[in-house]
Design a binder for these strands. Sequence first.
DNA 1: CTTCTTTATGAAACCGTTTTCATAACCTGA
DNA 2: TCAGGTTATGAAAACGGTTTCATAAAGAAG
Lengths: 344, 344
Amino acid sequence: MASIKDVAKAAGVSVTTVSRTINNNPSISIETREKVLKAIKDLNYSPNSMAKGLSSNNSYTITLLVNVEDEKSFYNPFFYEVMHGIEKVVYEREYCLIVANLSTMLKKENVLDWLIKGKRTEGVILPSSIIDSRMVKGLRNNNIPFVSLGEPTSLRETINWVDINNRKAGEQAVYYLLDDNRKRVAFIGYDSSKVFSIRRLEGYKAALENSKINFDAGLIIEGRNSKEDGYRMMKALLNKNDIPDSVVCADNLISIGAIRAIQDSGLLIPQDISVISFDNSQIAELIYPSVSTINVDVFELGVQSAKMLFELIEKPGTRDQELLISTNVEERETTIRNNQQHEV
Amino acid sequence: MASIKDVAKAAGVSVTTVSRTINNNPSISIETREKVLKAIKDLNYSPNSMAKGLSSNNSYTITLLVNVEDEKSFYNPFFYEVMHGIEKVVYEREYCLIVANLSTMLKKENVLDWLIKGKRTEGVILPSSIIDSRMVKGLRNNNIPFVSLGEPTSLRETINWVDINNRKAGEQAVYYLLDDNRKRVAFIGYDSSKVFSIRRLEGYKAALENSKINFDAGLIIEGRNSKEDGYRMMKALLNKNDIPDSVVCADNLISIGAIRAIQDSGLLIPQDISVISFDNSQIAELIYPSVSTINVDVFELGVQSAKMLFELIEKPGTRDQELLISTNVEERETTIRNNQQHEV
DNA sequence: CTTCTTTATGAAACCGTTTTCATAACCTGA
DNA sequence: TCAGGTTATGAAAACGGTTTCATAAAGAAG
């Protein structure tokens, strides 16, 4: 394997000169530069990343830290798209992306020491669900920049994070339904333990208030994210006197159950009740009728989190930042506005 | 940041001794060993991975190479599970997993040189869909072990690969239906450009032959993997004189379309026609009726590919291997055997 | 024609490990 | 008692880069 010495010898210069050529040092003359580049090409030379890393004290590596056992992070159908966004930015900057799994690594003595003191990474991106004060302290003590994927929950410290604009997403869902002449908008699947759910409900309320519609607590149903709970919650709404004419579902799984409940009651979608959900996934498009969704751009979430991380690496003193990414509506059969249901 | 020298000084020994202690060299006396371990703990020392890598000429890193723009690899809902399997094995061996995207990296001069000559990786795992002769040559020339995720298509070279046992999966689907007293088993969504599809059809034929049932080419319908094509293919079968009493769908998406077609014809599932599909995904469980599937264990696929790779790294001369992972049936509503349809 | 600056280059130290080779201290058996 | 072997340790070279400092050559200013 050709080393920088071999290149130096072949080009008839010193290793210093070769190093400077590679790193585009301006003090190299054009002729020398070309001699060196030719030698590099002839020998098919590529710099040894570990030697480079050792001498420049930079691993040129970013870590994506996940927890496979945590459903909210790794086992999320969106996750690979987030990763794609991160990966794109990381490689553009000539860094490497390493993926590490907390639950695998926790069996080791100390993950962060291994990762950070071991000089394996220059920065970490990690889902908010695995962040707690201990993690923040560990990262801060090691002086390692990090960005949270998602708004952190109940954390005293301020940290850097990127998230979908869930509040706006909640507003967007309601405004969309109101624009379609709906009067009673329900919200099912609210989960007070999830920040994103809290934000979406905030948006729901804000949109109603803004539209001078009284908030009816009876239209908010709490529940977990499953089709069974979706069915149960929708049934609960339908058993009341004053049923809603539209429903915002916290998730696609919930909307599947809710749709079945509505159909079982002999009501038509979207004529009698229209349905909208968050988090566009393949499922929303595949079931029948297909579900209108508020789409989140998780690729962009990845891109922005990586960009934020590089900013922190480059300018260490930067103040903590929060970045929100906007959403958009994707209209499907559960809310077709002209009140005609489409065929398969 | 504490280095090995600091530890040596604190323990009152040489760096050699510290290094030996870390690497469990048997020639270190118990007392010395304990002195060193104490110093390591006191200083909160972790070895610098790049220095270690440089001197031992081992990056302790495995690369998962994907192509985001290739639907068959990265944008596959199973992919993160495969990754999880790989990750588990990789970190157990104290290696790092780096994820690299071909299409991002191809914009660079030469991905493999950057990765391999740059001493960034000891081995590569990559989906068969991005393997061609050029890739194989590149890896072989660089003397870098690699394992293909999936049986390679039309490749002259023999290489190491791990795949789902698709032939057996095809047999399994047919045997399952025959055991349920079905007589005419159709197969829709056959795609001759996909190895896994070819294998599954082989299994289908083998199971029929083995059961002394004549093969009827009219029961095989070719088509793409979409719900629209599933609908079309099923309709084609239903328009014939002698319709099937059961159908094997190449994929979940196809089964969704097929189910709709059967229902539109006024036939009952599973009473009149039972449906089975491959590749258990969330969708199979969520749609109505839920689809019985031949389940593939993609986590295991990841585990085995990583294990194979480490074997190649440890014993370079090993002959090329092919490893097949078995499948199992998951019974759901489209094939309930007692001919009673379940509720939601 | 000096002296001072700029430009282009190289020698050598350094980054933090592993590993080879040397050696001191201790045992073993004749 | 001493040759020979074992055990425990350390000094120094090596890995392949980057960076500091020194310097020769060339140009500019007086």
